[in-house]
């Protein structure tokens, strides 16, 4: 086990900002991609629903 204390873990031997900078950005970017995708899915679903309602009205 390399780290004696959490503080040391985050300091990462002085390279903390670089290591956590890259991992942090990676996390942010991955979550952003996932959220954007969920939004896109919601929009697509509502679009399909609207079309469904439209078609039902026409057929009535």
């Amino acid at each position: 086990m390399n780290w004696t204390s959490p503080a040391e873990f985050f300091a990462m031997g002085g390279y903390g900002q670089y290591v956590w900078g890259s991992f942090g950005v990676a996390l942010v970017v991955l979550c952003a991609e996932w959220l954007l995708l969920r939004q896109r899915r919601q929009a697509a679903l509502s679009q399909v629903k609207r079309q469904l309602i439209l078609r039902e009205e026409e057929s009535r």
């Binding site: 990462m12 031997g13 890259s22």
Partner: peptide, 11 residues
């Protein structure tokens, strides 16, 4: 490279 090399696990 001390601890800085750990970025390799992502890069």
């Amino acid at each position: 490279q001390g601890e800085g090399y750990r970025i390799i696990f992502l890069h």
